[in-house]
Design a protein around this nucleic acid. Structure first.
Lengths: 148, 148
DNA sequence: CTTGGGAGTTAGAATGATTCAAAATCTCAC
DNA sequence: GTGAGATTTTGAATCATTCTAACTCCCAAG
């Protein structure tokens, strides 16, 4: 079910970790593997449960730690919607999120550079933004798949 | 400190409540008054503390209830940022939020219709969105005031 | 080797925002 | 004035997340 990391993905992980002074550990590999295996914006709990199939001793706290580390070195993004549990997303390209009212599922929506630019342009002078979060909430006709 | 509602604002409150089958109560008036008096995106706790100056017996649960009711009848918007406490905003015009990294303060950013439109246009066919949340996170040069 | 230190992991307790449940109060139509 | 239904209150419960302290692992120095 959960494939091992490809050589390429393992290198990606290692490079990002080492670059920010962190180590590659079996737990981090497991968590990262889980994230890449099913890109459906899982919650911490979901990651935890999936990862335990592969590494039964893994603890919840470690999953929190790993994910925090990944966010810190830019490997994954957090996705928050209202006050629901934080979800995690390994899609690094600039994108927005669409949350389906009916299913709760989160879809990635590609964000063209010109739209991003027009968004930035609405900031008054003096405001300098590093992060822009865009999230839609509504209905997606079933069958739509955009979970990159 | 906390002024009474203007006639106009009181009517606005009453109309919105009645339209969705709710009653005007002293607690709801107090909470609404607090929201209008200082449009700085307060948390529930902040609303609670401010409102108690005017109505000492008011309970926290009631503040939660009132705010939920207001959101339900479109009087105010919730503003969530990461997993911090929910904040409340009586600005009904379409706008984005800018969260100042340094102070934690939230500023409203006007959202021109054409930008809104270009945002909507990135949704693939089949996706239909009622709500769009846009939030910036970064630094605002101090002195910037955009808290309406 | 073997020892010691630092990073990482673990289990479980603690936190804190929010929600829930049940009793008390209010309000308004009759 | 009465009763039903809505609202408010208090305090307990929930639940995601964070914290704490003990433990493990690995590597580098002796």
């Amino acid at each position: 079910m959960i494939q091992n990391l490809t050589e390429h993905d393992r290198e990606h992980l290692q490079e990002a970790l080492v670059k920010s002074g962190q180590k590659v550990t079996p737990q981090r590999e497991a968590v990262f593997t889980v994230l890449l295996a099913q890109r459906d914006h899982p919650t911490v709990d979901e990651v935890f449960n999936r990862a335990r199939e592969v590494m039964p001793g893994l603890s919840l706290a470690t999953v929190y730690n790993c994910l925090e580390t990944f966010v810190g070195c830019g490997l994954v993004r957090q996705v928050n919607h209202e006050r629901e549990s934080t979800r995690y997303c390994p899609n690094l390209a600039p994108h927005a999120h669409f949350r389906d009212k009916a299913t709760g599922r989160v879809h990635d929506i590609e964000l063209p550079p010109e739209v991003l630019k027009s968004l930035r342009s609405i900031l008054p002078p003096g405001f300098d933004s590093e992060v822009i979060e865009i999230s839609f909430h509504g209905r997606a006709q079933s069958g739509e798949q955009t979970s990159n």
